[in-house]
Amino acid sequence: MSKALETILEIDLSALTHNFNYLKSKLQPQTKFLAVVKAFAYGSDSVEIAKHLQKLNVDYFAVAYTQEGIALRDAGIKTPILVLHPQSINAETLIDRCLEPNIYSAKLLNDFITVAEQQGQKDYPIHLKFNTGLNRLGFNQKDVDTVVARLKSTTAVYVKSIFSHLAASEDLNEKDFTLQQIETFKAIASSFKSKSGIEPWLHLCNTSGIINYPEAHFNMVRSGIGLYGFGNSELEDKYFKPIANLKSVVSQIHEIDKGKSVGYNRAYTSNRNERVATIPIGHADGLSRIYGNKKGFVLLMMRKPISLVMFVWI
Rank of each mutant, 00 (worst) to 15 (best):
M1L: 09
S2N: 05
K3W: 08
A4M: 14
E6C: 09
I11H: 00
I11T: 04
H18N: 14
K26S: 07
P29Q: 11
T31R: 13
L34C: 11
V36Q: 01
K38V: 00
A39I: 02
A39G: 04
D45V: 01
V47W: 00
H52D: 00
L53T: 01
Q54L: 09
K55M: 15
L56D: 06
N57F: 14
Y60F: 15
A64T: 05
Y65H: 15
T66N: 05
Q67V: 13
Q67A: 06
G69M: 03
A71W: 04
L72E: 00
R73P: 02
D74F: 10
G76N: 07
I77E: 02
K78G: 03
I81F: 03
V83I: 15
V83M: 00
L84N: 00
L84M: 15
H85A: 15
P101E: 06
N102T: 05
Y104A: 12
S105A: 14
A106E: 11
K107Q: 09
L108E: 04
N110P: 05
A116Q: 04
G120K: 14
Y124F: 15
L128H: 02
T132E: 03
G133I: 15
N135S: 12
R136K: 15
R136D: 03
L137M: 13
Q141T: 07
K142T: 07
K142R: 10
V144T: 07
V144P: 04
V147Y: 02
A149F: 06
T155R: 09
T155V: 07
I162A: 01
F163A: 01
L166E: 01
A168P: 01
A168L: 13
A168R: 15
N173M: 09
E174L: 12
E174A: 14
D176K: 12
Q180F: 06
Q181V: 04
I182C: 03
E183Q: 13
T184I: 11
S196D: 06
G197K: 12
L202F: 03
S208Q: 06
N212P: 05
N212L: 09
E215W: 04
F218I: 07
F218K: 03
N219L: 11
M220L: 15
R222K: 14
R222S: 14
S223F: 07
G226T: 13
Y228L: 14
F230Y: 14
N232H: 14
Y239L: 15
A244S: 12
A244M: 12
L246D: 05
V249L: 04
V249K: 08
I253S: 06
D257P: 04
Y264N: 13
A267G: 06
Y268H: 12
T269Y: 06
N271I: 13
N271V: 13
R272M: 08
N273F: 08
E274Y: 04
E274N: 04
T278L: 07
R289W: 08
I290E: 06
K294C: 08
G296T: 14
V298Y: 09
M301W: 07
I306W: 15
L308K: 10
M310Q: 11
F311A: 09
I314F: 11
